[in-house]
Design a protein around this nucleic acid. Structure first.
Length: 286
DNA sequence: AAGAGGCCCTGATAGC
DNA sequence: TGCTATCAGGGCCTCT
């Protein structure tokens, strides 16, 4: 569930359940995520109370008492599941729903008084990271560009960032140091709504297009959040918070389908840009 | 500095 | 059925 809207949905669920709760225990089954989990990680968070949960771009951040923090990045396949102690009833915090309770890809479990949260991540591209100070966290987050939902994110920001870039706009949208929070699905959708060809270079994008990009980025991500995010692959049996935005996709995974734009008979094409699939209408995205 | 490409990892699916 | 190849919602590192 890696893109911004999906992380936001998980954050919202967690806020209702683990905020102001004390961490009773954490058990790590596999420390080898994208980065190896620090040997002292457990002792740093056990017995601390969670005082806030927030999200920046694709990062979920858990604030602990005494202003310590730890951050979760879900990589390509990371999910969190809430498991209640009584009757072992499981509430899905994520979008995948394979049997998660006993699973070789459960890498760590955080225990609370009457429930636990389980981190599952088959590909192990996700990671967790601890910060002792807010400034340290801030420094880490500042390596990234603004996220589209930031107030200061507008066409002028984009202009400043990409005016001289010879990189194609698809890769620009995916480059977290330029714009953060957008992944492959939403990049495709944003470019479609903005009628911009994914191969167009940053320096060739005009002001009108920059305006469309900034407005559509905000609009699409907000709408995706309202729809509960996107659930693709593996979402059968999902109880609880399954997303619906996948039903709104205009181009993502729509190869050979007729362009949904009124009066356009173009076909959706699939091309590969930097090893990632891009979907676009050849006719209206110039 | 900026851009391109390789690579990390497992699972699902397509094709033979 | 069983093998192999390809592809996945990401991003870091290295090389040029």
């Amino acid at each position: 569930m890696p893109e911004l809207p999906e992380v936001e949905i998980v954050k919202q669920s967690l806020k209702k359940t683990i905020n102001l709760r004390k961490i009773k225990n954490i058990v790590i089954y596999n420390r080898n995520l994208r980065f190896k989990i620090d040997e002292e990680f457990e002792t740093k968070i056990i017995s601390k109370k969670i005082t806030n949960i927030f999200r920046v771009a694709k990062y979920l951040i858990i604030e602990l008492e005494i202003k310590n923090f730890f951050l979760i990045h879900f990589g390509m396949s990371g999910t969190l599941h809430l498991v209640k102690n009584k009757k072992q009833k499981r509430t899905n915090l994520s979008f995948y729903s394979s049997e998660i309770i006993t699973n070789k890809h459960n890498h760590f479990v955080i225990f609370f008084e009457d429930f636990k949260i389980v981190y599952n991540d088959p590909r192990r591209f996700g990671f967790i990271k601890y910060f002792q100070y807010y400034d340290e966290l801030k420094l880490f987050l500042n390596r990234n560009g603004l996220e589209p939902l930031d107030r200061e994110f507008n066409f002028k920001y984009l202009q400043k960032k990409i005016k001289y870039r010879k990189k194609n706009i698809k890769n620009i949208l995916l480059d977290q140091t330029i714009i953060s929070g957008i992944g492959n699905i939403y990049a495709n959708e944003i470019l479609f709504y903005s009628k911009i060809n994914p191969n167009k270079l940053g320096c060739d994008i005009n002001t009108e297009e920059l305006k469309k990009l900034s407005i559509n980025s905000k609009k699409i991500l907000k709408k995706a959040i309202l729809k509960g995010g996107s659930s693709i692959r593996n979402f059968k049996n999902s109880d609880g918070n399954k997303g619906n935005y996948q039903n709104e996709f205009k181009v993502y995974n729509k190869e050979n389908i007729i362009c949904p734009n009124f009066n356009c008979n173009g076909k959706i094409k699939k091309i590969v840009i930097s090893n990632r699939s891009s979907f676009y209408c050849e006719n209206c995205q110039s």
